[in-house]
């Protein structure tokens, strides 16, 4: 279980994240949505102890992430390309992460085989270093690496961006499987409302660092989210432009 209490992050007097309370139960799959600057990546960075909170704290399985490092063995993430080691081939990268997570070579080989449809004949076995792969293939590698060693908490920042349509469909299947696993807590952010509502069980909407909506997913969630964002886009559109249209 992850519990966030009075968490805030302030840069130069500007508050970028301010969450009074947020509890994520074990095994839940949470979708994080919000416009640019809403604080999604800030929240993920705080969860991974990559930045320090200005106030408040996060407990992950009762471990305070900013004070102890004991959350690391059961947590994995793919946030951006700075999680990839450019001079390794994808296979070497998987083996490396595997060694850190107590997996042997055979485990990793089995894992790669099981995700072969996700890689779709690309990325793996290409004799290319990660830095030379396309953005989409890099992302595939990063996502699969985050699944090594059956982590209890998986954090994926915009996993759908840069992926081709078929891979997006395959990824949805993978995340759904994780979501159904009662031992795995999943946090996914995305700009694609359709994807998020499809794969998660609960949607949290951030706006300017604050939680403005937090709901268990229902049939109406997608429409509700779309309405919300439509409202924002209309309230921000300058009036003269509207008249021209």
């Amino acid at each position: 279980m992850i519990s966030i209490t009075n968490l805030s992050k302030v840069y130069n007097g500007v508050s970028v994240l301010d969450i009074d309370e947020l509890k994520i139960h074990k095994g839940q799959a949470i979708g994080l949505v919000g416009n640019n600057g809403a604080g999604k990546t800030t929240l993920f960075s705080l969860l991974l102890d990559l930045i320090q909170p200005t106030s408040g704290y996060i407990l992950s399985n009762d471990i305070k992430v900013s004070e102890s490092e004991d959350w690391k063995p059961f947590t994995s993430a793919f946030v951006d390309e700075s999680f990839l080691i450019g001079y390794l081939t994808p296979e070497e990268y998987f083996y490396f992460i595997g060694e850190l997570r107590g997996q042997n070579k055979a485990d990793i080989d089995a894992l790669m085989a099981s995700y072969s449809d996700f890689f779709n004949g690309e990325a793996i076995g290409q004799k290319k270093y990660l830095r030379d792969l396309s953005k989409g293939n890099q992302k595939k590698v990063g996502i699969v690496a985050a699944l090594i060693g059956n982590p209890e908490v998986v954090i994926l920042d915009e996993p759908f961006a840069n992926l081709d349509p078929s891979t997006q469909i395959r990824l949805k299947k993978i995340i759904k499987q994780l979501a159904d696993d009662p031992n795995t807590t999943v946090l996914v952010s995305s700009h694609d409302l359709q994807h998020v509502t499809e794969v998660t069980q609960r949607v949290v909407l951030l706006e300017k660092g604050k939680v403005v909506m937090d709901k268990e997913k229902t049939a109406g969630t997608f429409a509700e989210l779309e309405n919300y964002f439509k409202g924002i886009s209309e309230s921000y559109a300058p009036v003269p432009v509207m008249e021209e249209e």
Partner: peptide, 12 residues
Amino acid sequence: SSYYKLMMSQNI
């Protein structure tokens, strides 16, 4: 440095 975030969030 180019993958420091990974190193810091892994069990290292």
